Amino acid sequence: MAFNFSVLASGSTGNSLYIETEQQHLLIDCGLSGKKMIELLGQIGRRPEDIDGILVTHEHSDHIKGLGVFARRFHTPVYANPKTWQAMASVIGDIPVEQKFAFSANTSKTFGNLDIESFSVSHDAADPMFYVVRHQEKQLTLLTDLGYVSDHIKGLIRDSDAYIMEANHDTEMLMMGRYPWSVKRRILGDTGHISNEESGRALTEVFGDRTKKIYLAHLSKDNNMKELARMSVGQRLESIGLKLGREVGLFDTDPEHSTSLTAI
């Protein structure tokens, strides 16, 4: 069986990624209501009862909104680092101790035939981290919710087969928009979110011969548009000679609908 994934939802209102091999069925984040999570899994023909574990990136509500309900209803193991467990405790409610597991930042864990490496990012949460997922010779990177892409992160994620990459905002839309300056400053800062332009720049530095799929994720509903993100990132990729649609696919994600279940 192939190494498959689907971005169940991505955006400022909720985020979740589904990953599977023949041995493992995992979620990274559970940022929508329990009911919506079931619906999103159904869109790709998968059942919540079959999820073997949920890995948490950080405690912001758009990443954990449905976590407690889902984990209790389906008896799903949950993995998070100690500071994130502490930060989200009052939000997710009680989870049976036998379902609670530690997955510290900058460490690796094996889930069946998946090897998953966590890495710290710069974001305004207790101990935010994202993941590189490896199966045999294939590598998937999930990277959203960060103020900048450090050289260390670039080294970890270089030449992935597929990227799910933040393109949170268009800087001009953000600056001209209705947000108060304090919020704009947070988004633009080193612990905020990366823009379309910053996303494209980082991708040109980590893109490798194996890279075939890029999904633009965590788009702001107020300060971005799918077409704008795709154009901005696409122009950056084409500037290094890549032929979009032939050498690499550039795809949207959506806050309400799952992407097709795709093999890496």
Rank of each mutant, 00 (worst) to 15 (best):
A217H: 01
E198K: 10
E98D: 15
G42Y: 11
H152M: 11
Q86T: 14
F251C: 05
L216D: 02
E198W: 01
G155Y: 02
Q43T: 14
G241R: 03
H169P: 02
D127R: 00
E39N: 13
M165D: 00
I64W: 00
P82W: 10
L55H: 07
E166I: 00
P77Y: 08
G241E: 07
M225K: 09
R246V: 15
F103N: 01
E39W: 03
L237V: 05
D209P: 02
Q139N: 08
M173L: 15
M176V: 02
G234M: 04
I214S: 03
D254M: 00
I38H: 06
K213S: 05
M176W: 07
K154E: 08
E98R: 07
A71I: 04
A87D: 06
R201M: 14
P96Y: 14
G155M: 02
D159N: 12
P255F: 13
H60Q: 12
E39L: 09
E166G: 09
Q99F: 14
I157L: 05
F103Y: 10
F111Y: 12
N113A: 04
H218P: 00
V69H: 12
N113Y: 03
G234R: 02
T171A: 11
R230H: 06
G42D: 11
G53F: 10
D161C: 05
S160N: 07
D145C: 09
G31L: 03
P96L: 08
L67H: 03
R230M: 12
H218F: 07
T57A: 13
L146V: 03
Y215E: 02
L27A: 03
A105Y: 04
A80G: 00
I38C: 01
N15Q: 00
V132F: 11
H63Y: 13
Q136R: 04
Q139G: 04
Y215A: 06
H123L: 02
I214M: 05
S182M: 13
S258Y: 11
P255Y: 08
S12M: 04
G66D: 07
G177W: 09
H60V: 09
S120N: 03
E205T: 05
E22W: 02
A89H: 09
F103K: 00
I19D: 05
P48E: 05
R186F: 15
I44S: 13
S118H: 04
I194A: 07
N196S: 06
S232W: 01
T171V: 14
N168E: 05
V233H: 02
F207E: 03
D124H: 09
A89S: 15
I38W: 03
S104V: 14
L140K: 01
T84N: 11
I44K: 08
G34P: 04
L114C: 10
R185N: 13
F101E: 10
K221V: 12
H135R: 02
V132N: 10
A263T: 15
F119S: 01
V91G: 04
R47F: 15
I116L: 13
N196I: 01
T204S: 08
L156C: 00
E205A: 13
I28Y: 09
K36Q: 12
S220R: 01
S199P: 06
Q43N: 12
S150E: 05
I54Y: 01
R158C: 02
D62Q: 01
V183E: 12
K100E: 15
G34Q: 11
A202P: 04
K226F: 10
S10Q: 09
L67K: 00
Q86D: 12
L32F: 00
A125E: 09
S232D: 11
K138Q: 12
Q136A: 06
M176F: 07
I240V: 15
